[in-house]
Design a protein around this nucleic acid. Structure first.
Lengths: 151, 151
DNA sequence: AGAATACATTTGCATGTGCGTATGTGTCTA
DNA sequence: TAGACACATACGCACATGCAAATGTATTCT
């Protein structure tokens, strides 16, 4: 059985749908999601890889968090973000196809390559000295069980 | 070989991605796409089924048309709209998953049921007297070949 | 040609969104 | 406990978007 965050009118799931697409309707947020695909990442890596300002990154991460697409975890000074898959199977398939679409994109591949470089040689990137590197996540077929701090 | 509407910077495909999601980021537009899934539909049916104002429907159809997601065809007084699938395979998979997501939604199912009723008993709906009924489309594995009036 | 039909577009307004800048908050270190 | 660090949030601005209401346009009918 699926559990929807539905209200009396039964239309809440619709809201969740266009809400998801609003969250995806921004290039910066797509870049962040692309970098999070399959791994949990520290904010400083986002800033380093995208070369965007810290508040801008933080704002978009907050947007994704409010949309329920990502979750955050604190580790000392650092904040780690990871993708949380939708509860219903169809929404999960959509998000996965989106991520696989991102994976095929040239600019997104460039971002991932830059992330890999930053992880291999963190000493070359002043901003991420000592920051915990990204950690791969389980195949995450789980439906958002064992959830962490979502807000 | 795929053909991207790419510019000198090679980033145009990214634009196409968040552009698609902006088009999907509205409940009314999702309702219209749901009704168009697999068939070509006349505008008056959209108005009848959604019970929204005519300018509102027309505006959202224009939005989808500008985003390249739907195409229009004129038949006398009537305008027919249908979904045009993205050129690249990954984008096409995304859109298909979105449509299948819509198919599972209760409110979307209600819309489709109401459309079916309007088609079976057009005499009960004053606004669509004599309007051409929706016509099923081919499986449309074609990549937007044989394109019609897109704008 | 003139009226009716079926849509499309424009206008004015309210709201949402993205951005840089500035400032606040939680954590570690000295 | 004071400062540095990593990040989050508030503020003000410019711009995009959604809406209703009004108007414009293409087509058919008489």
């Amino acid at each position: 059985m699926q559990m929807y965050s539905t209200d009396m009118t039964g239309r809440q799931k619709i809201f969740a749908m266009d809400s998801l697409f609003r969250a995806l309707a921004d290039r910066t947020r797509l870049r962040l999601l692309n970098l999070m695909a399959g791994q949990e990442i520290c904010v400083c890596y986002f800033i380093e890889v995208t070369e965007e300002s810290q508040p801008k990154i933080s704002r978009h991460l907050a947007y994704l968090r409010r949309a329920g697409i990502v979750a955050a975890r604190r580790e000392g000074k650092w904040m780690h973000y990871r993708i949380t898959e939708p509860q219903d199977a169809a929404g999960r398939r959509v998000l996965r196809e989106v991520l696989s679409w991102l994976r095929e994109d040239k600019a997104m591949q460039a971002d991932r390559a830059r992330l890999a470089r930053a992880c291999c040689k963190p000493e070359k990137f002043v901003s991420i000295q000592g920051a915990p590197p990204p950690t791969a996540l389980a195949i995450s077929t789980r439906t958002s069980s064992s959830r962490m701090e979502a807000r």
